[in-house]
């Protein structure tokens, strides 16, 4: 019988295939393995029928189970919304000024506000809220328009010096380059520098004092401590929105600055506005 090809060396049956005189030993796979393979094919066909599979011109075949990852996402978003519904309701209604950091509502507001901040505020104020030149640092204890929860919420809601919101915070500094003489500008600049830096020309600053009292103190105050009602910055502290060097200060006096922030009232939802206010207040500089 030459039905079976037997390899002489090993005594093992060969498959009968020959390549250049080389024969292949037959090491049969278990039959159940083959059935497992067929089972995966059946499974695959079932899968294609049950789940979205074939790409079509618009979209894909839906599958008889109607499964969709988008729907699943929407479902889980809804589930979270539902779970947070009472917190959201509370956030809109409750007095958010006195919340302790360990309060659930505070933690929720900070987490939500952080997300809102990164999406809508970080473009100007930076992802860490450290600000940039012309964009206030929100981590420190210096606030142009007040740092209480109510102040912050108002600023977020209505913005600053914008035309979109009639309730926006508003003030405008005159361009003293058109009002004061050149030497007077120098003197006022020297005086403003003298308020926070020991390195200044005392004599020149002394002349600037009088000019400051006449021209600037109505907004910035006699002691130049600023006025949050008018958004007038404190000129005696260590924080300078546009820089503390002589050129920057002189530029501010000569040309004035006009920092603008958009109102968020229509663009953000009510809970988002409240949440981002709590978040900004929690960053380290929030006032009572």
């Amino acid at each position: 019988m030459s039905d079976k090809n037997i390899d002489e060396t090993t005594g093992t049956e060969t498959t009968g295939h020959v390549w250049d005189g080389i024969r292949e030993l037959n090491s049969p796979l278990p039959r159940w393995w083959l059935w497992t393979f067929y089972a995966t094919i059946v499974w695959g066909i079932g899968y294609v029928i049950a789940y979205p599979a074939w790409p079509m011109i618009s979209g894909a075949t839906a599958g008889v189970l109607g499964y969709s990852t988008r729907a699943e996402l929407a479902e889980s978003v809804d589930a979270h919304e539902l779970a947070n519904a009472s917190l959201v309701g509370e956030l809109v209604k409750a007095d958010i000024t006195g919340l302790a950091p360990s309060d659930d509502l505070h933690r929720y507001a900070v987490a939500r506000g952080g997300a809102v901040f990164r999406a809508h505020c970080s473009q100007c104020h930076g992802s860490g809220a450290a600000g940039a030149k012309g964009y206030p640092n929100l981590l420190d204890d210096d606030w142009l328009w007040g740092g209480s929860m109510a102040d912050i919420e108002y600023t977020v809601r209505h913005g600053i010096r914008n035309e979109a919101d009639p309730d926006a915070r508003y003030s405008e500094m005159p361009q003293f380059g058109e009002i004061l003489e050149e030497n007077e500008l120098m003197a006022v600049t020297e005086y403003v520098i003298s308020l926070s830096s020991p390195e200044h020309d005392a004599a020149l600053a002394a002349t600037g004092l009088e000019l400051f009292a006449d021209n600037c103190s109505s907004c910035h105050g006699e002691a130049a401590l600023g006025d949050p009602e008018l958004g007038a910055p404190n000129l005696a502290d260590a924080i300078w929105l546009y820089g503390s060097d002589r050129d920057a200060i002189e530029y501010s006096i000569r040309n004035a600055r006009f920092g603008v922030m958009p109102p968020w009232q229509p663009r953000l939802t009510e809970p988002d506005i409240r949440a981002v206010s709590v978040y900004v207040h929690s960053l380290g500089g929030g006032e009572e």
Binding site: S2, D3, K4, N5, E13, T14, T15, G16, N26, P28, L29, P30, R31, W32, W33, L34
Partner: peptide, 11 residues
């Protein structure tokens, strides 16, 4: 010559 089976049942 017949081709041998490439699959074997479990003994």
């Amino acid at each position: 010559m017949t081709n041998p089976s490439l699959y074997a049942a479990q003994e």
